[in-house]
Simulated scan of single mutants.
Amino acid sequence: MIVPAKGVVGLHAEAVRENAEERKLVLVFFGSPNRDGTTAKLLNEFLKPLEGNTRIETVSAYERNIAPCIACNVCVGEERCSQPDFDDIDALIRAADVIVVATPVYNLSLPAPLKAIVDRTQRYFAARFSLGIRNPVEKHKLAAVLVTCGSKDCEGAQIIARQLKLAFSVINTSIAGMAVWPGTDFDEGRETFEKARNSARELALAIECEL
């Protein structure tokens, strides 16, 4: 048995930590209640090209159950939210290099738990327009929007993209692209999955080139 010289293991562990810190952070907001459904399948296709080269943190909207904005206006006077359940998400948003929103369409919009998270970005709107902080989030980010639609009509995906573009405008984030998988209620969208999968992978590769 080869015994490593004293300190080698510690140095290796330190190198692993440094390497993890150097990797770009991909923050995923997962909006489906189903961990193994079509939205998860599309998300996995997007993440495959990024595995090993990035650090991925996932916020599952249904598991976190973030409280909705209560319009208390604390953020109008101070750069904070009165509800602390969003604080760790705020830290992740500030640190992220890429933000991914993976969601199904519910009634032409986002599912309620994910909509609550998006609505809590009001703190950044207040910081920008009430407190006069030009960039409430300093680090620029790229975003990917991944949407699954039970309907073959993609109108809901376009509405979601408009909502997210507005929210992203105050967290220094630009949408790099969107991959949509329509018709999932029809035989699980098998006819449209390949196109959606290719779009998701191409989007991931394009973003990786920008990092």
Results as ranks from 00 to 15, higher is better:
184 T>M: 05
87 D>E: 14
21 E>Q: 12
174 S>H: 14
159 I>Y: 09
184 T>S: 11
124 Y>D: 12
10 G>P: 05
127 A>L: 03
204 A>P: 07
203 L>Q: 08
200 A>H: 06
185 D>M: 09
9 V>E: 12
107 N>D: 12
160 I>G: 10
187 D>W: 04
170 V>M: 09
163 Q>G: 11
203 L>D: 15
177 G>S: 10
8 V>F: 04
94 R>Q: 15
78 E>T: 10
134 R>N: 14
209 C>F: 04
79 E>S: 11
1 M>W: 02
163 Q>K: 02
113 P>V: 02
185 D>E: 14
171 I>W: 10
184 T>F: 08
67 A>I: 03
146 L>R: 00
37 G>E: 07
39 T>V: 03
55 R>H: 08
162 R>I: 08
86 F>L: 10
168 F>P: 09
36 D>Q: 06
201 R>M: 15
197 R>L: 06
170 V>H: 08
61 A>K: 00
203 L>S: 09
114 L>I: 06
174 S>Y: 12
162 R>P: 00
119 D>V: 08
129 F>G: 09
5 A>W: 00
20 A>H: 05
46 F>M: 06
71 A>V: 11
122 Q>S: 14
69 C>D: 12
196 A>P: 01
64 R>V: 06
104 P>F: 03
87 D>C: 01
81 C>E: 15
192 T>Q: 04
99 I>D: 11
148 T>E: 15
29 F>L: 12
57 E>I: 05
183 G>Y: 02
96 A>S: 15
189 G>Q: 04
131 L>Y: 04
108 L>H: 10
74 V>W: 05
86 F>C: 04
73 N>T: 12
199 S>E: 15
51 E>H: 00
139 K>H: 08
111 P>F: 02
135 N>H: 10
31 G>F: 00
44 N>L: 02
140 H>Q: 13
171 I>Q: 06
16 V>P: 04
59 V>A: 10
1 M>A: 05
94 R>V: 12
42 L>T: 10
104 P>Q: 05
101 V>Y: 05
50 L>P: 04
185 D>S: 13
208 E>A: 01
42 L>R: 00
167 A>G: 07
178 M>W: 02
56 I>P: 02
4 P>T: 05
147 V>F: 05
94 R>M: 08
74 V>K: 11
125 F>I: 10
174 S>K: 15
143 A>D: 12
202 E>Q: 08
117 I>E: 11
204 A>L: 02
206 A>G: 15
27 L>H: 10
188 E>P: 04
141 K>T: 12
5 A>P: 14
65 N>S: 13
176 A>K: 02
165 K>S: 13
